[in-house]
Design a binder for these strands. Sequence first.
DNA 1: CTCTAGGGCTAGGGTTAA
DNA 2: TTTAACCCTAGCCCTAGA
Lengths: 85, 85
Amino acid sequence: MVGYRRNKWTAEEEGALLAGICKHGAGKWLNILEDPEFRPQLLYRSNIDLKDKWRNMKIKEKSMTQTLDSASISISPCKDFAFSK
Amino acid sequence: MVGYRRNKWTAEEEGALLAGICKHGAGKWLNILEDPEFRPQLLYRSNIDLKDKWRNMKIKEKSMTQTLDSASISISPCKDFAFSK
DNA sequence: CTCTAGGGCTAGGGTTAA
DNA sequence: TTTAACCCTAGCCCTAGA
């Protein structure tokens, strides 16, 4: 379509997504979107966008795993986020 | 949820569902499931699964209808199945 | 309470822009 | 060629009403 452009994810959006996953769980995309805690940062994203982004982030992480393993480093997806239950 | 996987329908399962519908009628999902004639092929399906699959099959058929119409072809859902009343 | 009907949402394969 | 972003839709969930 004319004027169409891809919308790249910002660091802020990624942070809101990760925090949302930690709070609601992966797969609860609409819950994350509707949470007042994350909605402001994710206004221009759909639940499908969240799902697709999480998949891409997991792929990226997986491609880094071997490097991290060899350095004895492990990642905890939620350790950097504080949120209300 | 953890460990969750999609369960794609096999040709055998679809055949059992169609034969079950021809024998018991669409909507009689539990009757179909409990029929010894079809239960073996549908062991890992719920009555809700049957309902959802039938809906999807109807959607597929509808999307083919125009093509078939233009070729003057009609489909009889039960013609390929023999069963005991 | 159980079962079905139909709307709603997700998972994963597929496609495309860059 | 690679891949993040986006599309398609079968499969699964939620729940009102019978």
